[in-house]
Design a protein around this nucleic acid. Structure first.
Length: 199
DNA sequence: AGGAAGATCTACT
DNA sequence: GTAGATCTTCCTA
């Protein structure tokens, strides 16, 4: 089955499970006249107050309240001058989100190259800050619903082409949890790095 | 006002 | 592969 928008229930589960299952799905950025598309090839799960690397670690604040609320919405914030795209995901009454870390470009590659100012396809969307720039995603799109049919960002089913999932510790986090919460498609050329150096 | 933040780019050993 | 400069918000004092 392909082309269908992922349901809200999809996101109402443990963030690590959602992060794992988002691999291979298609992220769609709908502009006025075209759509930019890419296959999600790398993700990371973040939890709530028990996770020192999470935006929600120090409790509910205005800027992070989305992580406490509706699953299936975007949660976008800035780190070191880069916008990072997360999807809110957690079981009922819990807290969490999944960071989209890398895409394999599918459609609208020319526009992505223009947005990024480079021509190398392997550097186009192989990092969380890179893909938001390529897809023209900024704070303006914070809190929008990715499960709606007419959303500027949506995530849809892909054909099942079969791949292996590899995991590692999260990248560049100061204080990580003792569990592996980064997931990526094994052997894919568009992940940000093949292994975590701090492994 | 100051500093931290889940990153990126460039220029090298 | 790693090191250092720089990036822009939002939080905390």
């Amino acid at each position: 089955m392909s082309g269908r928008v992922l349901s809200r229930e999809f996101y109402e589960r443990d963030p690590a499970e959602v992060a794992r299952e988002l691999l291979g799905k298609i992220l769609v950025r709908r502009l006025d006249d075209v759509s930019l598309k890419g296959v999600i090839v790398e993700t990371e799960a973040y939890y709530g107050q028990d996770d020192p690397a999470s935006r929600a670690y120090k409790g509910r604040k205005k800027f992070n309240e989305l992580m406490f609320k509706d699953v299936g919405k975007t949660f976008i914030y800035m780190v070191h001058g880069n916008w990072l795209l997360n999807i809110v995901a957690h079981p009922k009454d819990e807290v969490g989100a999944v960071l989209i870390r890398a895409l394999e470009p599918l459609e609208g590659v020319e526009i992505m190259m223009k947005n990024r100012g480079i021509r190398n396809i392997y550097s186009l969307t192989n990092g969380p800050g890179k893909l938001t720039k390529a897809l023209a995603i900024t704070k303006d799109l914070n809190g929008i619903d990715v499960t709606e049919r007419i959303s500027k960002i949506q995530i849809i089913e892909n054909i099942d082409y079969g791949f292996e999932i590899q995991d590692s510790y999260r990248i560049n986090v100061k204080k990580d949890l003792p569990i592996k919460l980064r997931f990526f498609i094994k052997g894919n050329k568009f992940v940000s790095r093949l292994e975590n150096p701090r492994l």
